[in-house]
């Protein structure tokens, strides 16, 4: 089974104190830690598990700057065979649609049975790239997948719906699946493991390698553009409990007693 996985390197913002940069169109990313998009860490793990079981190859693609090599190397260390990076100054400003088009063009000429992406990216959160790629490659897709059983020339996949309900579907190969968190337990990558793949070449492909015209890539090839970013309005907002830890604890107890009936 030949598997292609698309991955993105994203800033870790959940824990960080973030601020808006001077352009007003993005956050200030200096000082932020970056890592493999959470959903993609499950996608690459699933690909490696399938390879270990069924043989074949795993090839990883990422559209991004030089820094993305770090995340691609992590995937190589996890067990991927090959990694490619799509990069071109003309790719700047790409939305989900334009990103999907570049990835689809890069993948089109390669042999594959299965393409895996994450369900969504932690940063832009389009939840779109995988499904658009499937349409462009004219292959069937299943999104938000929490379990895969490979059968003869087809896959049985569980899709997550709302409220704990799942939908089981069958899809002919080649197909694209968008992977949901929790499908597996992504393996730990040691520093030794990363070192082993440090020298491996990661090929870079630009717009001309993909036969894409300037108007088809980056901002020019996008459906949407981001005009400005701002902090979400908090509405009434929470009343902050302040003071020494003991005082905060007492206030919290009072609320629990008052509103929750704690005796």
């Amino acid at each position: 089974m030949n598997i292609i996985v698309c991955i993105k390197r994203v800033p870790d913002t959940a824990d960080a104190d973030i601020s808006i940069d001077k352009s007003g169109k993005d956050i200030d990313k200096s000082g932020l830690a970056f890592d493999l998009n959470e959903w993609d860490s499950y996608a690459i793990e699933e690909a490696i598990l399938l390879k270990e079981k069924l043989g074949g190859t795993v090839t990883v693609f990422s559209a991004g700057g030089e820094d993305s090599n770090e995340s691609l190397r992590k995937c190589l260390a996890m067990g991927a065979d090959d990694a490619l990076r799509l990069t071109d100054p003309a790719f700047a400003g790409a939305d989900g649609f334009a990103t999907a088009r570049a990835l689809a063009e890069a993948i089109r000429k390669r042999p594959y049975d299965l393409i895996l992406t994450g369900t969504q990216a932690e940063d832009d959160g389009y939840g779109q790239v995988g499904v658009v790629m499937a349409q462009m490659l004219r292959i069937p897709h299943v999104s938000i997948v929490t379990r895969i059983d490979v059968q003869e020339k087809k896959i049985k996949a569980h899709r997550e719906l709302e409220g704990g309900l799942e939908e089981v579907v069958e899809v002919d190969l080649p197909a694209l699946l968008t992977i949901q968190t929790g499908i597996n337990e992504p393996r730990y990558v040691s520093i030794m493991g990363i070192r082993k793949v440090a020298k491996k070449e990661i090929k870079a492909l630009g717009a001309s390698d993909l036969n894409l015209k300037p108007e088809e890539v980056g901002l020019a090839g996008s459906d949407i553009q981001l005009d400005k970013v701002f902090l979400p309005p908090v509405g009434v907002g929470a009343e902050m409990l302040e003071g020494k830890p003991e005082e905060i604890a007492r206030k919290m107890f009072d609320i629990l007693k008052d509103k929750g009936g704690v005796a």
């Binding site: 800033p11 913002t13 959940a14 973030i18 808006i20 956050i27 939305d95 932690e122 940063d123 832009d124 959160g125 901002l219 996008s222 459906d223 949407i224 553009q225 981001l226 005009d227 400005k228 970013v229 701002f230 902090l231 979400p232 309005p233």
Partner: peptide, 19 residues
């Protein structure tokens, strides 16, 4: 004109259709 959230809901983005 659209509003979306990015970075896990920590930031709002004003977005418009370019195409």
């Amino acid at each position: 004109d659209l509003t979306r959230q990015i970075y896990g809901g920590k930031i709002n983005a004003a977005v418009s259709f370019l195409r």
